[in-house]
Amino acid sequence: MAELIPVENLDVVKAIVAEHREVPGCLMQILQETQEKYGYLPLELQGTIADELGIPLTEVYGVATFYSQFTLTPKGKYKIGICLGTACYVRGAQPIIDKVNGILGTAVGDTTEDGKWSVDATRCVGACGLAPVMMINEEVFGRLTVDEIPGILEKF
């Protein structure tokens, strides 16, 4: 994964807007690419997008919060996603979440202060046969038990 661009550098987001601005309905595309480059969509970036497009910030914010793929807070280097789909849930996903949060001192949606971890509850990831399932970035851990969690986190 490419190194993220710091939010102070607004040149990149401006370039993204400049590239797409003439296309009707370009806001989604711009938000996606901006999040890809910066990792998240804080006020500074959304404000810049609004100013550059000449639309109110409220419109940008409405779209950014409507779609769950967008995040307003920076995610950790390692993004933990614990599936709360039906299968995972009945096979004990909640204790897994509790364990992860206990170790990292987080709540669902949080990022640790050192920026290493972020924890999210996800919808079904399509691996119900392996329930309960946790993902760390692209790696999948299945048939989890609570006791396995400390060992997995230590590997990162």
Binding site: L43, Q46, L57, T58, Y61, G62, T65, F66, Y67, L72
Partner: peptide
């Protein structure tokens, strides 16, 4: 702005 979606939808200033 109309913020968030579904049951969480709310009308508030941004952020």
């Amino acid at each position: 702005a109309q913020c968030d979606r579904g049951y969480e939808t709310n009308i508030n200033p941004v952020f």
